[in-house]
Design a protein around this nucleic acid. Structure first.
Length: 439
RNA sequence: GGGGGCGUGGUGUAGCGGUUUAACAUGCGGCCCUGUCAAGGCCGAGAUCGCGGGUUCAAAUCCCGUCGCUCCCGCCA
């Protein structure tokens, strides 16, 4: 018999159907048993008259909530039933996998254990519709992003995550044993996507894992997360990168709104709004002027930079002023940016770079890259980086590398912002942090 | 790496110096119940109050240390 989904039961009145799902609740009474079955499309009541099949009744009495069941029964209309006025008169039942009792926690209880404990039993936590929705949204979001890239002639790349030298020379890389030598986990595909520019690919993107050995204990950091990176050639400035970015995000938001807008509203009480393009742009100096006006005081050591509080303040400002959740902050001082960010020809202390802030959270860093061999090398030296380790990277710029730029975006952070999730642990299938390697 | 908060039955909480043989909810077990539906009723099991030390006549309750979790800052996406 073919499987019927619970949402389709109203079309099956009078028929015998097969349902597959989990036991949400068992109400075991003297003469009747009621099983509430859950599949990914809804809940249905299954009724069993004990005297009609005492053996089956005994079997049912022994199954635990959350067990995986296959059952068959006749679909009947019954006004008394509060669950849609429909019930299944049970005929056969197979316990595919019984759930031991008691459960580590009840996924559908009103009060839930804290996040850390739920991580231990993540698969139970993920049975909640709310959590499945997050990953359905992620699927749509990622698919739309990829679709937009492909429509615009991008090549999708999969760069190595194991590297012989740290990708950006930073300290926060993971070391791993690699046969007789040391290796590192990629902090970003930055150098590889730039190599693709030298290769003449012109437009590339990559969606893949990135690793950061930061001992960060916040609601928005992970040691492994999904990075969405792209890089494009023959640009005139970082403006070209921002322009692509905002249209790309608006496209992705549109796809999510169309497919999940209603359910997101119901579940998270969040109205998905496709952001207005172009996004507001603030230069760093404009941002500082606004912060001053808002009376937000940056710590003195943050000179030329923004701290998370300043990002939240700017997020609030653009929401109030432009009704936009997004804002590009541009033209950051070279002192706080990576050596490979290109600087303005007429203002050598400022980079042609930007951050994208969404609802006050840093989502993206991007820039036009420095593609001139000598300038790039000089900037690395100026930052005090060892040029020997970077020589392989510098070599990308020796034989005809076009001007280019791009960005990296945290997919999980975008999900967080999109759905107003309180923690990045909600926006990732399995969290990886300084103290979390399981499951 | 720095700072704050929290750690009580399986889970979520209450209690915050003596009236606590540690309470409540939920879950679990048993019994009862003309079809329940956030089911209901009765009974029961389950906690040396994270761990170690100290103060005190008396500590879940105060102090110190330690571990764990969590949030903020740093770092970033």
């Amino acid at each position: 018999m073919e499987r019927t989904f619970i949402k389709d039961l109203p079309q099956k009145i009078g028929e015998t159907v097969q349902l597959k799902g989990w036991l949400q609740t068992l109400r075991d009474q003297k003469s009747m048993q009621f099983l509430i079955l859950r599949d990914n499309t809804g809940l249905a009541q299954v009724a069993h008259w004990k005297k009609g099949n005492p053996e089956l009744a005994e079997l049912i009495s022994g199954i635990g909530t959350e067990s995986a069941l296959t059952l068959t029964g006749k679909v009947v209309e019954n006004e008394i039933v509060k669950l849609g006025g429909i019930e299944i008169q049970l005929e056969t039942l197979t316990v595919e996998n019984n759930a031991e009792l008691p459960l580590p926690f009840e996924p559908f209880a009103e009060t839930l254990p804290d996040m850390d404990y739920r991580q231990d039993w993540r698969y139970l936590d993920l049975r909640r519709e709310r959590n499945r929705l997050i990953f359905e949204v992620q699927t749509t979001l990622e698919h739309a992003m990829r679709e937009y890239f492909v429509k615009h002639g991008f090549i999708e790349m999969h760069s190595p995550k194991i590297m012989g030298t740290p990708s950006e020379g930073g300290a926060e890389v993971f070391h791993i044993d690699y046969f007789e030598r040391d290796a590192f986990l990629a902090q970003s595909p930055q150098f590889f996507k730039q190599m693709a520019q030298a290769a003449g690919f012109e437009k590339v993107f990559e969606i893949g894992p990135v690793f950061r050995a930061d001992p960060s204990f916040t609601s928005r950091h992970m040691t492994e997360f999904t990075g969405v990176d792209f890089e494009i050639s023959w640009i005139d400035s970082h403006e070209d990168v921002m322009a692509f970015c905002e249209n790309w995000l608006a496209y992705a938001y549109t796809a999510v709104k169309e497919k999940h807008g209603e359910q997101i509203k119901e579940t998270f009480d969040v109205e998905i709004e496709v952001p207005q393009t172009p996004f507001p742009r603030l230069t760093m100096s404009e941002a500082y002027a606004i912060l001053k006006e808002m009376d937000y005081k940056l710590p003195p050591e943050k000179k030329g930079d923004l701290d998370p509080g300043a990002e939240r303040a700017l997020g609030e400002y653009v929401k109030n002023t432009y009704s936009n959740d997004f804002v590009f902050v541009t033209d950051w001082p070279a002192t706080v940016r990576a050596f490979y960010h290109m600087r303005h020809a007429d203002q050598p202390l400022l980079t042609k770079s930007f951050d994208l802030i969404g609802k006050g959270l840093e989502l993206t860093t991007g820039a036009q890259r420095e593609h001139r061999y000598e300038v790039l090398k000089a900037q690395a030296i100026e930052k005090g980086l060892g040029t020997e380790l970077l020589q392989g990277y510098f070599d990308y710029f020796r034989y005809g590398c076009p001007p280019h730029g791009g960005l990296g975006l945290g997919l999980n952070r975008l999900l967080m912002v999109m759905l107003n999730l309180p923690s990045i642990r909600d926006a990732v299938y399995l969290f990886r942090g300084p103290n979390r390697l399981e499951p």
